[in-house]
Amino acid sequence: MDQFEKTWNEVKRENRRIDKETDRRLRENIERMTYGRYKKKRMVYRAAAVLVPLLGLIFFYRTVSDQTGIENTVVLKTGNEIKTFRLSDGSTVTMQPYSKLTLDKNHFGKAERPVGFEGKAFFDIAKDKSKPFRIDAHGFKVQVLGTRFFLDQKSADQSVALKEGKVKIERRGKITFLLPDETWVSDASKREHHYYGASRVKTFAFNGAHYEEAIRRLEETYHVQIQYPDRYRKEKVQGSFTGNLNEVLAIVSYPFNLKTEKISDQQIILK
């Protein structure tokens, strides 16, 4: 544009008519300006022609991918009711209220049986040694081959209570194995505990221990709370005893004529 104005002003100052040479110079400037604009527009149009299909392809890919993921995901959940679901491998899951289990039907049952779980449920897993059943409980993982257990992912004290079979639990790189009548707990402070069911037979040795210490050992082993009269706290307990919770508790309490009263699975009162 500057060159065009310069040429025009030169002609004006000379106060003469435009000759052929001057006319040629003006036309070249005009064509150059016009062609430049046309060329820029053509480049923009070409870029748009490439970009629009590309954006459409990306949108189409994302949409198809999202829809495919949704179509392949199976979600089983409960409202305010307890409900039992049967999975394609024959396993059953009895979920407590407001629990959810998800699985990918394209992967479940192939080389393994992975699921995600939130809430509380009792699992009865069909035996298949070649295809481990894996549960991602959002904070810890559980692997089984065929077993029955209760999983609580929802409470502050997360837990797995094994009834039958064998279970492997992985949390923060630490692995714990459970056998029947054993319970794994991760408490609110993220400390791990390993407890036994009340029917599990164990051996306890009390060499002149106070009664309160013997009761504490039983509480820590079986994950129960035991109440007893305070006046027996410092009484001595002597001997080695083998049995389940009720049997050992009855033996160490016999000298004080205390009888057990079971309030719940986790609470016992001695009177």
Rank of each mutant, 00 (worst) to 15 (best):
E164K: 12
K166S: 15
K166L: 14
V167I: 15
V167F: 15
K168E: 13
K168N: 04
K168D: 03
I169Y: 12
E170A: 13
R172S: 12
G173T: 13
G173M: 14
G173Y: 15
K174H: 10
K174V: 09
I175M: 13
I175C: 05
I175L: 13
I175K: 09
I175P: 00
I175Y: 07
T176G: 02
T176N: 08
L178P: 00
L179R: 08
L179G: 01
P180N: 08
D181W: 03
D181M: 10
E182K: 06
E182D: 06
T183N: 08
W184D: 02
W184M: 08
V185L: 11
S186T: 07
S186H: 02
A188E: 15
S189K: 12
S189Q: 14
S189T: 09
K190Q: 13
E192G: 00
H193F: 14
H193N: 12
H193L: 12
H193W: 08
H194W: 07
H194I: 12
Y196N: 01
G197K: 05
G197Q: 11
A198W: 11
A198F: 06
S199M: 07
S199A: 13
S199P: 00
V201T: 11
K202E: 15
T203Y: 05
T203P: 01
F204M: 14
F206T: 02
F206R: 04
N207G: 05
G208S: 08
G208I: 13
G208W: 09
A209Q: 12
A209V: 13
A209G: 00
E212G: 02
E212R: 14
E212K: 13
E213T: 08
A214M: 07
A214S: 12
I215H: 03
R216P: 01
R216K: 11
R217P: 01
R217A: 03
R217L: 09
E219T: 02
E219M: 09
T221V: 06
Y222F: 11
H223F: 11
H223D: 15
V224A: 07
V224W: 08
Q225S: 09
Q225A: 10
I226T: 01
Q227E: 13
P229C: 12
D230T: 14
R231S: 02
R231Q: 10
Y232E: 08
R233I: 07
R233E: 14
R233W: 04
E235D: 14
E235S: 13
K236A: 05
K236P: 00
K236Q: 09
V237R: 00
V237A: 07
